[in-house]
Amino acid sequence: MPQFDPATFASQIFWLVVSFLALYWVIAKFAIPRVGEILEQRARLIQDDLDRAAALKADTDAAIATYEKAMANARGQARDTLLAAVNAMKKVADDKTAAVNTEITKQIADAEASIAKAKSEAMESIRTIATETAREAVSKLSGMALDATKIDGAVMAALKDAR
């Protein structure tokens, strides 16, 4: 077998050492830096893109938060304004109702007073008429002139019964 010919060993080992060192130089100084640089560059690019995406997402989140806050503020303000308007209107309505009520009460009282006055006047005139009529009737019927107070008392009693 040619593999066990020691005459070739020195040459093979010599060129193995030379070739291996040369290849080591090619790998260490040429292949690894160049490929490593490409891989690093790609990793950096991907990382940059991821970072930018994260930053944009943070911006979006901040914008959404600002919007939500503004929205909440606007809602609060709208509610306050609405409440104030409702309260103001209610107050106006209450005031008006109260004024009208007072007016109506006053008018009712006036009306009641005038009714009572008219009623008492009417009663008074009924009594006078009744007394006159009774005295006239008694004097016409019996010719007696009755005491005015007696007639008055009878009329009063009769009126009281009529009521």
């Binding site: 005459a7 070739t8 020195a10 040459s11 093979q12 010599f14 060129w15 193995l16 030379v18 070739s19 040369a22 290849l23 090619v26 790998i27 040429f30 292949a31 160049r34 490929v35 490409i38």
Partner: peptide, 26 residues
């Protein structure tokens, strides 16, 4: 005797092949 042999030639080709691969690739 450190003659440049067919064995050494193919070691050289291995170096050149590796260099060519990484040169073309990058």
């Amino acid at each position: 005797n450190v003659s440049y042999t067919n064995s050494a030639l193919f070691m050289t080709l291995a170096i050149l092949g590796t260099f060519a691969l990484f040169w073309v690739a990058t």
